[in-house]
Amino acid sequence: MPERTQSAPRIDEFDIRALPKAEVHIHLEGSFALIDILTLAKESGSALPGPASTIFDITTHGAYAAPEVTTGGGSGVGAGGLTGFLGFLDWQCGLVRTREQAARIAYSFAARQSSAGVRYSDVIVNPTHWNAWRGRELELMDAFAAGFDDAEQDGLCVTNMAYSLLRSQSAIEAEDIVGALVAARPRRVVALSVDGDEKVSGRTGEKFQNAFAAAASAGFHRTVHAGESSGPEGVWDAIDLLQAERIDHGVRAIEDPALIKTLIDREITLGVCPRSNVSLGIYRDWQSHPLPRLLDAGVAVTLNTDDPAPLGTTLDADWAVAATEFGFTYDDLAGFAERSIDASFANDDLKATLHSELQTTIAEHS
């Protein structure tokens, strides 16, 4: 990797968007545009959890910087921190009640990704947030797939889904979910995931070990949220117990040299999201973030947004900030693009196409 300097010239976001890339750590629940929320609320006759101007603050300036918003259940966003943020996600996802609305959200996601220069996405979907679809989770997946089908047909970002368990679910629930996924093989569901607050739930690797083993045996990919609010032990559990091919976050691995070696030896990629980590207080600022140290150690790292709408960002914007904060060059960002394609769960043909287009883009830039 080229030597980085803090005085590296600013990279134009047009050049960042032009790099063919994948995003591998992003949640559908955290990708609602303001117009999506306002339209869904109007369609359902639901009152906004505060003035429209406050919803604007949440979806454009970031939930963590926004004034407190209370939902019907009293959860605050902004001043409410992570709990309030999750409460807001539950409220907005609860507005999606029909197949057509779900397909529209999926199409809107693909359009948003395309506008940031993303060509392929592994989007994480946790059905526990979508309360109108309880007991009909596979129907929800199919509705999203229909929207992603339409988006791909229209030339937008190709999107597949990682079905995510919630850490607070039981082992039996997880095994039943995987059994249903294996039996139904829902379209565009290519991976099993698990997310939720590690600090609250504690170590859950052993609880979900059988579910992830069944998913692996059935040919589903595995990606696990770990090493965010937990330390390196969460990443070890993801690797040793859940057969993780990719780690979502994983930044706390920097604290354990043996874990760093294991990540390198097993070629396990970290889907890192600096803005999210800083917003949630995992690190105090961008300069404290271990992203450069992980790269220098030889870990395969991709740069992602996590929940871009409530964090008030897009992938191209975060790549530009990373370039400024860490002194990344254009070649560094091309490396992020290359690793994102490699780490994605796209099929081999699409990966080959994206790699070819990436090399052409880099040559034309030189």
Rank of each mutant, 00 (worst) to 15 (best):
301 V>T: 12
361 T>W: 02
115 S>K: 07
109 F>A: 04
297 A>P: 05
189 V>P: 05
226 A>F: 05
227 G>M: 07
193 S>K: 03
365 H>S: 15
145 A>D: 08
237 D>S: 12
235 V>N: 02
126 N>V: 00
214 A>W: 04
21 K>V: 06
125 V>G: 02
49 P>T: 06
331 D>A: 15
231 G>Y: 00
232 P>K: 03
193 S>F: 02
280 L>P: 02
173 E>F: 11
232 P>H: 01
274 P>T: 07
244 A>N: 01
200 V>E: 08
283 Y>L: 02
353 T>M: 13
342 D>R: 12
147 G>V: 05
202 G>W: 00
290 P>E: 09
133 W>R: 00
352 A>P: 06
295 L>N: 04
239 I>N: 02
79 A>I: 11
116 A>L: 10
147 G>H: 08
143 A>I: 01
36 D>Q: 07
124 I>W: 03
366 S>R: 14
21 K>G: 04
68 E>N: 14
139 E>H: 08
322 A>T: 12
328 F>N: 07
224 V>E: 08
9 P>E: 14
32 F>R: 06
125 V>I: 07
169 Q>K: 08
252 R>W: 03
295 L>Y: 01
301 V>R: 10
259 L>D: 04
201 S>Y: 13
233 E>Y: 08
42 K>C: 14
56 F>W: 15
317 A>C: 04
38 L>R: 11
153 Q>C: 15
314 T>F: 07
233 E>C: 08
346 A>I: 03
23 E>Q: 12
297 A>Y: 06
302 T>Y: 04
134 R>P: 05
143 A>M: 05
202 G>E: 11
284 R>F: 04
251 V>C: 15
11 I>K: 07
193 S>E: 13
18 A>W: 11
91 W>A: 02
162 A>S: 13
226 A>G: 11
203 R>H: 01
21 K>I: 02
309 A>V: 04
205 G>H: 02
121 S>H: 09
121 S>A: 03
112 R>M: 13
347 N>S: 09
231 G>W: 06
47 A>Y: 00
35 I>V: 14
222 R>I: 02
182 V>L: 06
181 L>W: 03
174 A>N: 05
151 A>N: 00
319 W>A: 09
328 F>A: 11
357 E>H: 03
174 A>T: 01
165 L>V: 06
343 A>F: 06
111 A>I: 14
123 V>L: 10
310 P>E: 03
147 G>N: 10
60 T>E: 03
207 K>N: 12
271 G>Y: 00
17 R>D: 14
19 L>S: 01
52 A>W: 14
340 S>Q: 00
93 C>L: 05
213 A>H: 06
64 Y>A: 10
294 L>S: 10
341 I>G: 01
187 R>N: 07
297 A>N: 06
195 D>R: 00
250 G>E: 01
139 E>T: 06
111 A>T: 15
92 Q>S: 13
253 A>G: 08
115 S>P: 00
208 F>A: 12
265 D>Y: 10
238 A>M: 05
311 L>D: 08
40 L>G: 00
361 T>N: 08
273 C>G: 11
